[in-house]
Amino acid sequence: MGLLAVALLMFAFQLARLKDDPTESRFERYGFWVLGAGTVVLGVGVFLRGVAAQRVPWANMYEFAISGALMILTIYLISLRVKDVRYVATFVTGFSLVTLFAAVSLFYVEVKTLMPALQSYWLVIHVVVAIMATGFFAIAAGFHIFYLIKAAGVGRALMDRFPDLRQLERVAYRFNMVGFVAWSFTLIAGAIWAERAWHRYWGWDTKEVWTFIIWVVYAGYLHAMATRGWTGKRAAILGLIGFGAVIFNFTIVNLFFKGLHVYSGL
């Protein structure tokens, strides 16, 4: 089941790559069909995991990763209806694929019963919003990357097919904006939960530290976007640093740092 989703996404990945050539729009169409199908299969997989565990499917690293991949793809497919952002399909599919690969090969754990500390409805609220925020940040990171490539003037033949820099910057800003609001919410919800579970709303646990760092970096990004001379490349780099911190928080902090958020299950 998981493998099927991966295979389909890989297929979509290869096809969607071809869409950069406007004359080959048939491939592009197929690519998005397959991407849609892959997302549905992944959605079924995540749902079944929830059924198997008899709870929400995002209580450990493996589940967070598969739900995260599903969330990114869903956000992306929805935003396609709002705005023409086809050009980041390669990045979004590729990133989801890497996430799924890591989940299946590195983070996989059998269904386990929740430890008492995780038995709370805040698990639903706090984590689902965290996944959403991560999804928006991830897609924004795609725009940042293409912005920087295009601004550097590398690969002109390909990059000319992308929208102009202003447009890339603007769309990235939108995604980061939503991500920032969601991240703020997840931080607040986390504090409320921590007050119930650990009898203090904030204790500079390693995960709390990194959540704070990410929030501050993205706050910096939003300030940069409003500061003359800091928009463009610098803001894009800040956005990427922010997303790097998100990834760091999910991987390195989970696996190697000592703290209270020990939910990886590995």
Binding site: W204, V209, F212, I213, V216, V217, G220, H223, A224
Partner: peptide, 16 residues
């Protein structure tokens, strides 16, 4: 503000 925000993020790292 931007400078201080980035500095704050940086300064929080050693605590982890």
């Amino acid at each position: 503000a931007l400078f201080l925000l980035l500095l704050l993020a940086l300064a929080a790292i050693p605590g982890s």
